[in-house]
Simulated assay, not measured.
Amino acid sequence: MTALRPERESEASYGEQQPYEPYEPYVPPLDDETVALRLSDLSERIGGATSGATSPSGASSVTGATGSPTGGRAARRKAAKRRGGRHGAGASPSTESAEAADSPDESSAPLSRVEARRRAKARKPSPGVLVSRAIGEVFITTGVLMLLFVTYQLWWTNVRAHAQAGKEASNLQEEWESGKRAPGEFAPGQGFALLHIPKLDVVVPIAEGVSNKKVLDRGMVGHYSEGPLKTAMPGAKTGNFGLAGHRNTHGEPFRYINRLSKGDEIVVETQDDYYVYKMTSSLPVTSPSNTSVLNPVPPQSGFKEPGRYITLTTCTPEFTSKYRLIVWGKMVEERPRSKGKPDALVN
């Protein structure tokens, strides 16, 4: 204490009694940065200091509201040091945590109009993103439509055509069983016979004409019967009975006629007779404009003279209509229905 109170200590050494002086507690200067946050703490410090007890010898023992000692210059220095320095240069961890708890959250603070616009603009997708999304949606939609179209062509058209062809075949057989006479000529689209290809397990109605809408797309086989492509009926004494059918989709009755071999039976069933043909030759690829294959004596068939022939025509390669596949056959038997089915349909 000699360095701090030289005069009073020198006087006390001679035993002189120093007059009692009221003690004024030391209050550290307020920190401008934390005064608003520590106002209650400051009031507690001041109140506690003024209410403390002072000893007659000048050594005060002041206790604050919290019960911690505040008397003595050394104690005050230690307390100030613990609080971050004599002038509040620093803040203790507890003070910092209290300030962080009392400070408002930036995310919850109201935004200015400029800042709100800036954030809204940042959240808005760029033109490039919008374009890429639009292109992606177009591709997805196109893919779905193509898938639906393929499903319709390869599956649904067959389902519908088989149902229509089956109904037409049943109607024909009912008419034949009832004894209803068919006219000598048939209207376009009208069924008049059944085609059997035992090797391929094909039984399909034959209708007049080769219209897609009226005949071929309904799963039936069409007879060339109009204009320059008109061919003979199977009951004619000579001639070429020309037929057309789909190879793919819409019932696809001629899909596998390329598998026919020489000698395989092809049977045409009418109201009165069975006409049995045997396959003789084929033309794997030819132009759609090669109508000579329907001539009474087709030049590429190998036939040399008039006879009773059958010609089957369809598209090739599969799933295209670029070329035509031709199969020829020669009649080997004409059998009345009253005599029962021919061997080709029994075996």
Rank of each mutant, 00 (worst) to 15 (best):
L4N: 12
L4K: 08
R5N: 06
S10E: 09
S13P: 15
Y14V: 05
E16W: 09
Y20A: 05
E24S: 02
E24K: 07
P25C: 10
V27K: 07
V27T: 14
P28D: 12
D32C: 09
T34K: 01
A36Q: 07
A36R: 03
D41L: 13
D41K: 12
S43E: 04
G48Y: 06
A49Y: 12
A49G: 00
T50W: 06
G52C: 06
S55T: 06
G58N: 05
A59W: 11
S60V: 09
T63A: 04
A65Q: 13
S68C: 04
G72M: 06
R73C: 12
R76I: 15
A79H: 03
A80C: 12
R83N: 02
R86P: 13
G88M: 08
G88H: 09
A89M: 15
A91I: 10
A91E: 05
A100I: 14
D105F: 01
E106F: 13
S107A: 05
S108Y: 01
A109I: 04
A109E: 07
P110I: 03
P110S: 12
S112W: 04
R113N: 13
E115Q: 13
R123Y: 02
R123A: 06
K124I: 07
P127I: 07
L130Q: 11
V131W: 13
E137T: 04
V138E: 07
F139H: 15
T141N: 13
L148V: 08
W156H: 13
W156Y: 11
R160I: 11
R160H: 04
A163K: 03
Q164P: 01
G166N: 02
E174K: 03
K180I: 14
R181Y: 07
R181D: 05
P183H: 10
F186I: 09
L194R: 00
L195K: 11
H196N: 09
V204Q: 01
A207R: 00
G209M: 13
S211I: 00
K214A: 02
G219W: 00
G219R: 00
V221D: 02
G222F: 00
G222A: 08
H223M: 08
Y224N: 07
S225Q: 06
G227Y: 06
G227H: 02
T231W: 01
A232I: 05
G242F: 03
G245V: 00
H246Q: 08
E252F: 06
E252P: 01
E252C: 01
I257H: 02
S261L: 14
K262Q: 06
E265H: 07
I266F: 12
V267H: 00
V268D: 05
T270I: 03
D272M: 09
Y275N: 10
Y275A: 10
Y277N: 09
T280G: 13
S282R: 10
L283T: 07
S287G: 01
P288H: 08
N290V: 08
N290M: 05
N290C: 03
P296Q: 09
P298Q: 09
Q300L: 14
G302N: 03
F303I: 02
K304N: 15
K304M: 11
K304A: 12
G307Q: 07
I310T: 15
C315M: 08
T320H: 10
K322E: 14
K322I: 15
Y323R: 11
R324M: 15
V327Y: 04
E333C: 12
R335T: 03
R337C: 04
R337G: 10
R337E: 04
G340W: 10
V346E: 11
